[in-house]
Design a protein around this nucleic acid. Structure first.
Length: 271
DNA sequence: ATGCGGACCTGTTAGC
DNA sequence: TGCTAACAGGTCCGCA
């Protein structure tokens, strides 16, 4: 489900409700996620205060007194603030209870998500250590994209969806960014000029910032921490629009699959 | 090192 | 109406 804008929307939605509060207990109903939820999680978290809720790539990082709790939403995960008396549904796998009575509920039908305790030195953890730059930070530059791509034959779309190239770009925003930059999604990453990488770097930043402003993209069921859907869907130019007219030139949009992911583009505007 | 395909899951929808 | 297949916002891992 969630790419960077949806994760960021979630973070902003839930942070004000739980920051500076203490965990009272953790209820785990299903620990079989991407990796099993540690059986000691409740004991580890109980009594600890949340100093801040950060995001790195698509990971939410709960900075606690003695370390970091990592949550990834996978394809279908969501986090919501619920009232303590709200009964749990089928896929509500984890509840974290806080000192003021609020409950943070993790829901994930497909169970591709993750809930892991990283302890101290979280940034050295294998999942975080080798991530690329944050797309909205200053170290995400056209130069970095250009240098990293030399000699690489992968399709540019796969290249920018690689979290070691730049974090947070998933299938929707990869399609949208390439359309905005006028780059054909199958073009080899190593055969794109610095000038075009400048356009791509800007396109990624514009698409992601606009999506964050709109509260993310809701295709079917994404809701932010406040339970509201995202409105960026109205601004999608290519994703989910195969066969429809290109918003720029009017030609019907093409649809192909790149590494088994739906890829939509305009053969006229993207080269 | 790079690149590819399979794996992990459930739910919804399209097609017969 | 019911069955089956394809597809869905992610990414890790093993193998060539």
């Amino acid at each position: 489900m969630p790419e960077l804008p949806e994760v960021e929307t979630t973070r902003r939605g839930i942070a004000p409700h739980i920051e500076q509060h203490q965990v009272t207990k953790v209820v785990v109903r299903e620990r079989r996620l991407r990796w099993p939820i540690p059986t000691t999680l409740g004991r580890t978290l109980a009594g600890q205060a949340l100093q801040s809720l950060d995001r790195r790539a698509k990971y939410l990082l709960f900075r606690m007194d003695t370390g970091t709790l990592l949550i990834h939403l996978g394809m279908s995960g969501s986090l919501r603030i619920v009232s303590p008396d709200q009964t749990a549904e089928k896929h509500d796998h984890v509840d974290i209870h806080w000192s003021d009575g609020t409950v943070l509920r993790f829901t994930d039908p497909r169970r591709f998500g993750a809930v892991l305790w990283l302890g101290k030195n979280a940034e050295q953890h294998a999942l975080l250590e080798k991530l690329g730059p944050e797309p909205l930070a200053e170290d995400f530059t056209a130069d970095w994209l250009y240098k990293r791509s030399r000699g690489r034959r992968v399709a540019i779309k796969q290249f920018i969806m690689d979290q070691h190239t730049v974090t947070g770009v998933g299938n929707i925003y990869a399609n949208e960014s390439l359309f905005m930059a006028g780059i054909h999604p199958t073009r080899q990453a190593g055969r794109i000029s610095l000038t075009r990488y400048q356009q791509l770097q800007q396109a990624i930043q514009q698409v992601l910032s606009a999506a964050i402003e709109q509260g993310g993209t809701t295709l079917r069921d994404f809701v932010g921490g406040d339970g509201k859907p995202g409105y960026f869907k109205q601004q999608l130019h290519v994703y989910g629009r195969e066969g429809e007219a290109c918003t720029s030139c009017g030609k019907p949009l093409h649809s192909i699959r790149i590494s088994n992911r739906a890829t939509v583009y305009c053969s006229q505007c993207q080269r």
